[in-house]
Design a protein around this nucleic acid. Sequence first.
RNA 1: ACUUCCAUAGCUCAGUUGGUUCAGAGCGCUUGCCUUACAAGCAAGGGGUCAUAGGUUCGAAUCCUAUUGGGAGUACCA
Length: 918
Amino acid sequence: MELATKYNPSEVEGKWYQYWLDHELFSSKPDDREPYTIVIPPPNVTGVLHMGHMLNNTIQDILIRKARIDGKNACWVPGTDHASIATEAKVVNKLAQQGIKKRDLTREQFLEHAWDWTNEHGGIILKQLRRLGASCDWNRTAFTMDETRSESVLKVFVDLYNKGLIYRGLRMVNWDPKAQTVLSGEEVIYKDEKSKLYYLKYYVAEGAEITEGAENVIHKDAKGYYAVVATTRPETIMGDTAMCINPKDPKNQWLRGKKVIVPLVNRVIPVIEDRYVDIEFGTGCLKVTPAHDVNDYALGKTHNLETIDIFNPDGTISDQSPLYVGMDRMDVRKQITIDLKEAGLMEKVEDYENKVGYSERNQDTAVEPRLCKQWFLSMKHFADIALPPVLEGKIKFYPTKYVNTYRNWMENIQDWCISRQLWWGHRIPAYFIETTSPLPTSPEGETFPDEAFVVALSEEEAYKLAVEKYPVLKTLSPSGESERGFILRHDEDALDTWFSSWLWPISLFDGINNPGNEEISYYYPTCDLVTAPDIIFFWVARMIMAGEEYMKDVPFRNVYFTGVVRDELGRKMSKSLGNSPDPIGLIDKYGADGVRMGMLLAAPAGNDILFSESLCEQGRNFCNKIWNAFRLVKGWEVSESLAQPQENRKTIAWMEATIRTASAEINDLYSKYRLNEALMAVFKLFTDEFSGWYLEMIKPAYQAPIDKATLTATLNIFEQLMKLIHPFMPFITEELYQNISERKDGESIMVDTLILDAPSKADADLIAQYEEAKQIISGVRAVRNSKNISPREPLTLEVVADDNITKCPDMGAIIEKMATLSDIQYVQTKSDGTSAFLIGTTEYAVQLGNLIDTEAEIQKMEAELKHLEGFLIGVQKKLSNERFVANAPAQVVELERKKQSDAETKIAALKESIAKLK
RNA sequence: ACUUCCAUAGCUCAGUUGGUUCAGAGCGCUUGCCUUACAAGCAAGGGGUCAUAGGUUCGAAUCCUAUUGGGAGUACCA
């Protein structure tokens, strides 16, 4: 086989991905093996791959491939999310470009457009994941709005309603005026914003008696007495129905029981008192707008205030307002400040920094608090069942710090608003009852509510439930189109997207519709969840709730929270900064394996990753390293007759011991989800131990053949190394695995398990021997380096000892080869003209002849001597401390004693050498 | 404001219950090598009073307290 000097990923990746698909190597079916399951965090169906996905899915693929190599039945289920609000917004925008308005379409027409859009753009992201090498079981690809998932969602809604956990309530909710839908608290993002604090004059209504007490701060001008109210939202004054002061506020005592006039609007409103008001803020006077502020709403309730809703759903001023009707809220803010100034009703304006809530999906749109009736899920019950598994460790979080975040949220949980005024999503299975005939006038005191509804999966069932729930309906006579005297109006609203995502680990295996089926019993609970910490509440917490509610078990055992991918400067990647590389472009440039390694190198669990292309370069370089190591091994000519040298056999044993040891370490790192460290361990094993030492040690002389036994063992070692690397770099490892020996069609590294023995004591001893040899070799090389001696020029090494180097004759040959030595001599005293170094307590000397610089040697040794003497003093001090000897464990004291005697030996040797040189 | 995490080499990070020859890795850096697998490489090397100040201990990067600096989350903000 001819191999290029550089690895070319583009020739390899597509080929093997297709091979894996053709042989259904990603697919999983329940069997006797231990299951290992991951469900993908479903990306937005119309989204495209970004660096966050790359990181997240690389990690999942590593875990799933590792499980396969370990012999588990690995199942990675892919899918996409309908992303209700985001997708609907995209479709609305696209229609707007075509001059079509959503409100001119029927629900059915709009959904047709939405499905067209989804089918056109949908699944691109899943295709892109294939480029990365993602080994998902594509036959299982699911969509949150496909039949099975939709049915599950609706069933769960009905079930929770029947359990009394879903209710309809009038609440102050977060309103997105652009998407014209309500949002949950989690969907609101607060941003710091520079704004203004406007101080407005509220004149006291005429006829009031003003007592000018000592502490009162009274404002008065030609037009009369007035109070000053500080507000950031002057446009809401049309909705003011009271002014509030703190009853304990001395400076505002004079306002007690008075009435004031809303500026411009000229409505007379009462001054109420409530301790909620912060005396120190502004002037201590608060305008109360119950329809447009959460706290004001609460005040309005306790003080029985009128509620005036001055906004339309789109954020324009409604006809409830006397002024600015039809204008947008942001324009009104500008206009009203001008008008207030002109009318002399603005006392001053100050700069102010506050937080404004924005819609998570329409990030330019400020959320408006709004009072409306919505569907809510009561969360107390869910918090009660979802908190213990995390606190008790049934579910482990990596890193653990998120346990606190989770607990905090659970302990302060708010009911979840699950309805959205959107069409793209799961339509809420509720039917409102509208009577078409007049109701009988309360026959047996039976009342009929203003908003009557039933919750049912079908209209037929809804009819049945309706007459059961409201028997009065049976008495109605037919009228108009309705034969029953009433009609059912299917709720127009859809459910929050997360109301389907929270069922994902269950609904993927059809566990809601078909409880106890073979798949759900086998794959649930899943093993690991890999996700970003910003959806811990949206998704992770709620999946735990749904799991406990419907499966009575956790949905996953471990949650690996990835960090945020940032650029080298630590900035978040964003379109506007243009600092987000195109993942597919990176794969084209560095190969999927290179990019995977690049992503992972800087990604400790939970830490943000500072991404730069140079990391991918490192990944690509490693691929090339692997490639060339293979070229070397494959290029050797085999000699059947050649006997295996003794030292080769030993080196093979050493490499195998090293692999066992590294593998144990790597498995331990996997178990702790320290994947970047596992990769680093694999990298060092291949680069340093295998390429740098092993291959160099067994490498035959130029154009000389290699013995069969060594080659076979080396190929076997190579294959083991490929399996260790495979989870991180699937493509190159498959390519080389297929080239190591003839493989049958359908054979793959993916499913060829690697189970190694635990490292033994003998392994450790062998490794120690080689470590010593490496140090000697490096020592000789360092001497060469400092004396500018070519690595090819043979040298003679003296070992100042009675014994030979390592009490093992075959190490000598290896050291000679690696350090390019012509001879190793064992001497009592080293000869003149040598440069020496110490390994442990043994001195090694390289014969340099006339190249030696005696002065420099003496200096070097004197520096070493000084250092050793200092060290010895420290040790002696420690040992002469009675309390140390008395209190420290025996082995620690013993160790110090050994340090002492070793140091004394070395010092003696050095002194002798120096004396001799002088 | 509260909760929480962090501060170790130029950068990114390891450093398990305090104790194995004056603290480790990768990258970067310096020097020398185009050595016959690989210059996308090889060899060798420099680089850290472990944020600061106290304390506990025979012994502290590691435990405690305070300070400083930084990140994250949550809440409030008229």
